[in-house]
C-alpha cells in the first residue's frame, strides 16, 4: 500500500509538472523576477464627480482694456460674455469680428464682448479698431492685448484663432465656436439659447 501511495503521489507530481510546463509554454511572459513590495499609496478610487456646470465655471481672470482700465471677469456677473480670441493678422478673425459688434449692439443690456487679442503689439490692434468706426465704442465692448498669452494659452488653452467661448450669466462656459464659419443668425440663436438657460 505504501509503495502504491508513492507511485500515485509521483503520478500526481508528473501531472502537475505537465500542466505547469503546458502553461509556461502558452505563457509569452519572459522573466520571472521577484516583485518588490511597495508602500501603499493613496488613490481615491471613483473620486467624487463634480457637476459639469461646476467644472465649466469660468476661471476668474483680469485684463487691461485697450483704454487702460483693468477689469476682472467677475465684474460681468449676470451678463452673457462673448469671449473672443482673435488677432488683426488673422483673416477669419476679421471676418467674424463685426458680427460680435452687431450682437453687442443688439443685446446691449444683456451681453458683454471681450476680445482677447494675440497681436504682436497694441498699435496693430488700434489700427484695426480704427477701421470699425463707432461700432467698437459701445460700453459693453472690451478689447485687451494679451501680451504674455496668459489668458489665451495658459488659462483657456487656445492655440488656434479664432475661437469664441460663450459664457452664461452664471459664468458657466456653455459653447465654444471654433473658426469663423458661421453666420450672424447662428450667433443670435446661441445667445438666445444662453438666455433661456435655467
Amino acid at each position: 500500500m505504501r509503495s502504491s501511495s508513492f507511485i500515485n503521489f509521483a503520478v500526481l507530481i508528473i501531472i502537475g509538472a505537465a500542466a505547469y510546463f503546458l502553461t509556461l509554454y502558452m505563457d509569452t511572459r519572459k522573466p520571472l523576477i521577484i516583485k518588490q513590495s511597495k508602500p501603499e499609496i493613496i488613490i481615491q478610487p471613483d473620486a467624487p464627480i463634480e457637476n459639469f456646470k461646476t467644472r465649466q465655471r469660468t476661471p476668474e481672470f483680469s485684463f487691461k482694456n485697450i483704454d487702460g482700465k483693468t477689469y476682472s471677469s467677475s465684474d460681468f456677473k449676470n451678463k452673457i460674455i462673448i469671449l473672443n480670441f482673435w488677432a488683426s493678422w488673422c483673416p477669419p478673425c476679421l471676418k467674424e469680428f463685426p458680427h460680435f459688434l452687431t450682437a453687442a449692439k443688439e443685446f446691449e443690456n444683456e451681453i458683454v464682448f471681450i476680445g482677447v487679442s494675440s497681436d504682436l503689439n497694441e498699435e496693430a490692434i488700434n489700427k484695426y479698431l480704427s477701421t470699425l468706426g463707432d461700432d467698437v465704442k459701445n460700453p459693453n465692448i472690451f478689447i485687451t492685448f494679451d501680451k504674455d498669452q496668459n489668458i489665451t494659452k495658459n488659462i483657456f488653452q487656445v492655440y488656434g484663432l479664432p475661437e469664441t467661448i460663450l459664457i452664461d450669466e452664471k459664468q458657466i462656459m456653455r459653447t465654444k465656436i471654433i473658426g469663423a464659419d458661421w453666420d450672424y443668425n447662428e450667433l443670435k440663436s446661441n445667445i438666445k439659447a444662453l438666455k433661456r438657460q435655467p
Partner: peptide
C-alpha cells in the same frame, strides 16, 4: 490528494511576478 493537487497547481504560479520599474506605476 485533492490538497496535494491544489498545492501543485498553486506552486505553478507562485513565481510568475515581474520586476517593476523603480517608479510606482499603480496610479
Amino acid at each position: 490528494y485533492l490538497t496535494v493537487l491544489l498545492t501543485i497547481f498553486l506552486m505553478m504560479y507562485g513565481g510568475a511576478a515581474h520586476a517593476e520599474n523603480t517608479l510606482d506605476m499603480r496610479s
